[in-house]
Nucleic acid binder design. Sequence first.
DNA 1: GCCAATATGAAATAATAATTCCAATCCATA
DNA 2: TATGGATTGGAATTATTATTTCATATTGGC
Lengths: 281, 281
Amino acid sequence: MDEQVPRDFETLRATILDRRESLPKRIAQIAAYALDNPDDIAFGTAASIAASAGVQPSTLIRFAQQLGFDGFTSLQQVFRERLRERNSSYDERLQALRAKAEGGAGHRAIFDGFVAAASTSLNDISRTLDDANLEEAIALLAKAQTIYVLAKRRSYPVATYIAYALGKLKIRNQLIESAAGLNAEMVSFATPADAVIAISFSPYAPATIEEARAISEQGVPIVAITDSSFSPLAQFARVWFEVAEADFAGFRSLSATMALAMALTVGVGEKRRDAGRRRKA
Amino acid sequence: MDEQVPRDFETLRATILDRRESLPKRIAQIAAYALDNPDDIAFGTAASIAASAGVQPSTLIRFAQQLGFDGFTSLQQVFRERLRERNSSYDERLQALRAKAEGGAGHRAIFDGFVAAASTSLNDISRTLDDANLEEAIALLAKAQTIYVLAKRRSYPVATYIAYALGKLKIRNQLIESAAGLNAEMVSFATPADAVIAISFSPYAPATIEEARAISEQGVPIVAITDSSFSPLAQFARVWFEVAEADFAGFRSLSATMALAMALTVGVGEKRRDAGRRRKA
DNA sequence: GCCAATATGAAATAATAATTCCAATCCATA
DNA sequence: TATGGATTGGAATTATTATTTCATATTGGC
């Protein structure tokens, strides 16, 4: 018996490619289809796959048998296993990272912990972000004459990134910060024709809250990124996003907030470009 | 009919979690199993899944029906679809999202793009980061009297985050930035007993390079985070990290750099604490 | 503690899908 | 171009799997 049944996808693939030349026409046809559409093989029924590949179900079974399987079903297992492994790798790796980080095995573990926290946060936010909310925020910001950016302490890096990106997109913006302690004055220039992006997480920096309150009392609409509906920022905001960042070693990730911030920024850029184009036309 | 059938996995998951409380015991049991072992649902037969979850096949079908599906088979489709999608690698997904965003597919696509870019970057860096390099950098920084942080433009948010974290850890640090244009003077205070974290990506901000050169000429050791071995920063650095961030819509992610920055920061914090403890003992 | 409504288990049934079989066709070779 | 073997198509058969049904158990309200 020189027939070694390929148990994993890569071996199977190699075997098929190897024999390609010597396969009968219809078998070759289904072989090509299998390598091109492995997902279909994993999920389809013999009949549906055969139809998609343009052959008879029986041919599909002969193909499987020629490879040493005892039928289509066992061939299909290989294709399913492949999907399973590919898919689990990500979650499992995250799990492993977290476990290793918990175990405290040197500095690599710290790094892994931050990577895991960031990944988790990204997963969470892409699950929970509300599309309508995003549209509303972008629409609001796109109308603004000047976009003010307000964030301190832990959220400050996000603010600087937003300011950088807005600048690159040639969107007028003002980061509310001042070495000279002129924040209050800066805030007082904002009008209802402007808008604010405010970012703050618990424990909320008092200055951020205070400035957000002042600016909202002037009628300037606020888009807030914060961590719960109890956040004082949420009550001043016209639109607000709840972002739950995972933490590690006492520091919360910023990855989800960053992704959202970029989406807002670039979204505003696009919306303005579209509006401009429409006006010209 | 108020029954909205969840067509995608996330919606389904949310629906299940939402109703969790009100589900009968066995149904709840299979619901929990489904969320814990989605792969098994995708590939198993009703009988095999029911057995693994410790319920009857009929319960599984009732579960599906309660969610608004017309049977187990249509519920299973959702789990299969999830595998299909998840399976496409991050790179492929990023590619697809880019195309989608180009085509003007709404703002959600932009957001998804940034999330995908961040995830890709995190994947890459956790694959490529060299442990020894990390140890060396942390050892070097832990010895420093003052840690100077140097980064402009796109990398500036990372610098502010490092400065924030170092501050929280009570590690003396100095962000090299000055509204008054006194960077050169600031740099001149650094001595070989200090250290620098410098971050710069192509196109390298000339000021960063210039200051890095000046500071290295004073014998101050530099830990650099940059994007290639050809980076001018790499040549001034005692230790350097190559970080390849994925980009989307013209903006590169910062997630990998952030994770590395946090690992460095917290690593230094730990190393100092350990050293302090040893000295006391 | 009893009743009705609801939930569960187990087996029967229906549906679906894989496999087999055989006749028809194709192809290489003499 | 005739012949044997290999290949293929399509329907029949068999196996597997989902679903339904109904008897039994459990639960919650009075």
